[in-house]
């Protein structure tokens, strides 16, 4: 099969095809960047949400958890933890989060452990706000179930 393809043909596919793909990719990137604010409700991204994201990074939460399906697979998905543990109610989710973060690490032998991060109640609220905001992203119907 490759006998009929010459070196210069292959070279042209490389440059031509590569350029073509790159141009489409760049064009779609511009369009996606336009659409993301709406799909992610950027208007509701309060200071607390932004602070929560910074705390999420500072404590490397993604080193154990997935969020929107990306990260590590050691611990549960957290995009929909707001629905799972707070039943979609902000006040009860925030209360749950305060209790949860304070209780770590759980004293159950051999269970996978989550560290104690020594966060202030205000910081835990920031994280809750970040997770609530994240749960509302339009991710094309993902995750498929409440368990994530």
């Amino acid at each position: 099969m490759t006998e009929r393809i010459t070196k210069s043909m292959a070279k042209n596919i490389y440059y031509g095809g590569g350029m073509f793909a790159l141009l489409i990719f760049i064009a779609l990137t511009f369009d996606t960047v336009q659409q993301i604010p709406k799909r992610s409700n950027q208007g509701q991204m309060t200071e607390s949400v932004v602070a929560g994201k910074a705390l999420w990074e500072k404590n490397n939460c993604v080193g154990c958890h997935t969020i929107v399906g990306e990260g590590a697979y050691f611990a549960p998905e957290l995009m929909n933890v707001f629905q799972r543990r707070g039943a979609g109610d902000e006040a009860s989710f925030k209360a749950y989060m305060q209790g949860w973060m304070a209780a770590q690490p759980l004293d159950i032998p051999d269970r996978r452990k989550m560290p104690q991060f020594h966060l202030t109640p205000a910081e835990v609220d920031n994280l809750s706000d970040f997770l609530i905001w994240t749960s509302k992203i339009n991710a094309n119907e993902w995750p498929p179930t409440i368990e994530g």
Partner: peptide, 21 residues
């Protein structure tokens, strides 16, 4: 050539379920 043709736009397999269009 095949890498470029498939791999660049193939980035889209990570944009299914994370908030992209």
């Amino acid at each position: 050539a095949m890498t470029m043709v498939s791999g660049i736009l193939g980035t889209g397999h990570h944009f299914f379920y994370m908030g992209a269009p």
